[in-house]
C-alpha cells in the first residue's frame, strides 16, 4: 500500500495555499481528500508518478474546488451574521436594552452627537484590538476570518454618523454594494485578484463617505438629541451583543479545530 511522503503532502498543501485556499479548516480537509485520491490512483497504477497523478487531478478538478471554496466563504459569512442577530435577541441583551431605556426615561439624559461618534469609534478600535489579540490563530479558519470581517458591521450599521435615517440608507447601500460585488467578483478575480480588491475597496470608501456626508446633511434637521440618545443606547447594546458572539465563536473554533490550530 503506497502512502504519500511528508514532502508530497507539503507540496499539495503549498499548492492549495497558493491557489487561494487560505483557511486552515477547509485546506486540511481538502488536502486529505486530494491525498487520499492520489494514493488510491498510485496504488492502482504502478507506473504513475506522484507529480503526474497530481497534475491530472488538478487539471480535472481545480476550477470546481475554487468555486466550492468561494461558495463556502459566503455561507460562513451569512451564518456569522445570523448568529450575531440571534445573540442580539437573547434574554440578557433584551433586558439590558430595556434597563438602559428605563434609565434614560428616569434621568432624561441627552447624548451629544460628538460623544456618539467618539465612543463609536473607540468601541470599533477596542473591538479590532481585542479580536486581533484573541483571534490570532482562529482567524486562519474560515469561521474566524468571517467573524472578524463581520466586526465592522455595527460600525457601518450605526455609522460614525449619529443619524438613524442616514444609517438606514447606508445599510441599504451596503447591501446593494455587496450584491453587486458578488455578481462581478468572479469576473474581477479572474483577471487580477489584488487589483480587484484595491479597486473595490477604494470605490466602497469613496462612495461611502460621499453618500454618508450627503445623507447626514439631508436628514440632520429631522434629528434631535432624544432620538440620538435612544439610537446611542441601541448601538451600545449592539456592541455588547457582538462582543458576546465574538467569544461564543472563539470557544466554538477552539473546540472544533483545536488540533488544526495546534499543528499550524
Amino acid at each position: 500500500m503506497k502512502k504519500l511522503t511528508k514532502q508530497n503532502i507539503q507540496f499539495i498543501d503549498n499548492y492549495l495555499k497558493n491557489s487561494g485556499i487560505e483557511y486552515l479548516d477547509v485546506r486540511v480537509e481538502l488536502l486529505d481528500h486530494v491525498a487520499s485520491t492520489l494514493e488510491a490512483q498510485l496504488n492502482e497504477d504502478n507506473t504513475l508518478t506522484f507529480y503526474d497523478a497530481f497534475k491530472n487531478y488538478m487539471v480535472a478538478n481545480k476550477k470546481q474546488l475554487l468555486t466550492d471554496y468561494n461558495a463556502r466563504k459566503q455561507d460562513v459569512f451569512l451564518k456569522v451574521i445570523y448568529q450575531h442577530g440571534k445573540s442580539f435577541l437573547k434574554g440578557d441583551t433584551v433586558v439590558l436594552l430595556f434597563v438602559l431605556i428605563l434609565v434614560q426615561q428616569y434621568f432624561q439624559f441627552k447624548i451629544d452627537e460628538n460623544i456618539f461618534q467618539y465612543t463609536n469609534f473607540l468601541l470599533l478600535l477596542l473591538m479590532i484590538v481585542t479580536s486581533l489579540l484573541f483571534f490570532r490563530k482562529e482567524r486562519k479558519t474560515s469561521l474566524g476570518s468571517q467573524v472578524l470581517t463581520s466586526l465592522v458591521l455595527p460600525y457601518y450599521v450605526f455609522g460614525g454618523k449619529a443619524n438613524p435615517i442616514s444609517a438606514i440608507f447606508l445599510c441599504l447601500f451596503f447591501v446593494i454594494y455587496y450584491k453587486l460585488f458578488n455578481k462581478y467578483k468572479k469576473m474581477l478575480i479572474d483577471k487580477n485578484r489584488n487589483l480587484a480588491t484595491y479597486i473595490t475597496l477604494g470605490a466602497l470608501i469613496v462612495c461611502w463617505f460621499s453618500i454618508s456626508i450627503f445623507l447626514v446633511k439631508l436628514t440632520k434637521e429631522y434629528i434631535n438629541n432624544t432620538i440620538i440618545t435612544y439610537y446611542y443606547i441601541f448601538q451600545l447594546v449592539a456592541w455588547y451583543a457582538l462582543f458576546k458572539s465574538l467569544f461564543y465563536y472563539k470557544a466554538e473554533i477552539r473546540n472544533q479545530y483545536k488540533i488544526i490550530l495546534e499543528e499550524n
Binding site: 488536502l31 486529505d32 491525498a35 479545530y257 483545536k258
Partner: peptide
C-alpha cells in the same frame, strides 16, 4: 452547522483528517 453531525480531527499518515 445544523448540529446533525459533529467533527473530530485526528492525525493520520503525515496529515490531519476530519
Amino acid at each position: 452547522a445544523d448540529g446533525v453531525l459533529e467533527v473530530e480531527v485526528t492525525k493520520v499518515d503525515n496529515r490531519l483528517r476530519k
